[in-house]
């Protein structure tokens, strides 16, 4: 394992599998236990440095760190010196001077975790940077797929929606490819980046043509404001062409699952009855997130590189 987890490409197949296996072991070790806490990271300090609101991701990392007995400091951009104009670098050096061993960073600017990693000695974990990557989300998605389907090799995954602006999509394409899955990206052409041809994934504009052939459908959040920038004409048209409703879900294979990184726009990219169906892993993904993040923190912070 590298010292930081900045993007899915930091993990080769061996490391990625190690994270998933470790998460599974941790989950097994804690299942049914009264005391859901391990002493592993006692005395270590993990800082959650969040420049964007993301209660879901922050809580998941916080819980992961606390279950490993690390001390956790939540540093949110609101109401802190950040809003008074302190630079990312000064903030990073301050946190390090206070003895942080790892910084979990969520930032609106792509690449901010990379820069942070060049300024601090401790580990940096990317908890989502701009429209770049969100590697722990990809790990928990891979973990969820493996748990549900029993494998990742050869699993056919459709990722549907705003790929252009999605850090979840970028991380998933890289990680799932590393782990042997076959990814197809489906979106209106306006929501696919120029240069997507170099990604290890297929591209399609036609959701209905792809759905019968996949094992996993991962729906991405589509923000309504994209409409005002003419990425698509209307929410209704988007939903009609690229939304996952009960009719479309019916053409999926028997074992196929439906995923969503959350938060969902019910009625936009995913219909409520789909989100709540037995195929949906949406709630499960949240729980798996804690195990996967525990594994990441353990592997990054557990000790000196062996």
């Amino acid at each position: 394992m590298k010292r930081h987890l900045l993007e899915a490409g930091d993990l080769d197949r061996v490391d990625a599998t190690l994270v998933l296996d470790t998460a599974a072991q941790i989950e097994a070790a804690l299942t049914g236990r009264e005391v859901k806490k391990l002493p592993t990271l006692r005395g270590r300090t993990v800082v959650n440095l969040f420049y964007e609101d993301s209660t879901r991701t922050r809580i998941s990392f916080e819980l992961a760190a606390k279950r490993l007995s690390a001390d956790v400091i939540n540093f949110s951009a609101k109401g802190s010196s950040v809003s008074k104009g302190e630079s990312l670098k000064d903030t990073a050096l301050t946190l390090e001077a206070m003895g942080s061993d790892a910084i979990v960073i969520r930032h609106g600017a792509s690449g901010a975790p990379h820069q942070l990693a060049s300024w601090v000695r401790g580990s940096v974990v990317n908890a989502g940077d701009g429209t770049h990557e969100h590697p722990t989300q990809a790990l928990l998605d891979a973990y969820t797929i493996r748990r549900r389907l029993g494998r990742l090799e050869g699993v056919r995954v459709a990722i549907v929606g705003d790929v252009l602006h999605s850090r979840v999509a970028r991380s998933n394409v890289v990680l799932l490819h590393t782990l042997g899955a076959e990814v197809t990206l489906i979106a209106p052409p306006t929501l696919l980046p120029v240069g997507i041809g170099s990604w290890p994934a297929e591209v399609s504009y036609d959701l209905d043509a792809v759905l019968p052939k996949v094992d996993v459908v991962m729906m991405l959040r589509v923000q309504a404001e994209r409409m005002t920038a003419s990425f698509f004409p209307s929410a209704r048209e988007y939903s009609r062409r690229y939304g996952l409703d009960a009719r479309r879900m019916a053409v999926l294979g028997d074992e196929a699952i439906v995923m969503h990184p959350g938060p969902m726009n019910r009625g936009m990219e995913i219909a409520a009855d789909v989100a709540d169906s037995v195929r949906s892993t949406i709630v499960e993904q949240v729980g798996n997130g804690v195990s996967v993040r525990m594994a990441v923190l353990y592997l990054l912070l557990g000790g000196a590189p062996s």
């Binding site: 296996d21 470790t22 557990g302 000196a304």
Partner: peptide
């Protein structure tokens, strides 16, 4: 752990 490094569980 700090001295010996992480290992697979």
């Amino acid at each position: 752990l700090r001295l010996r490094g992480v290992r697979a569980l």
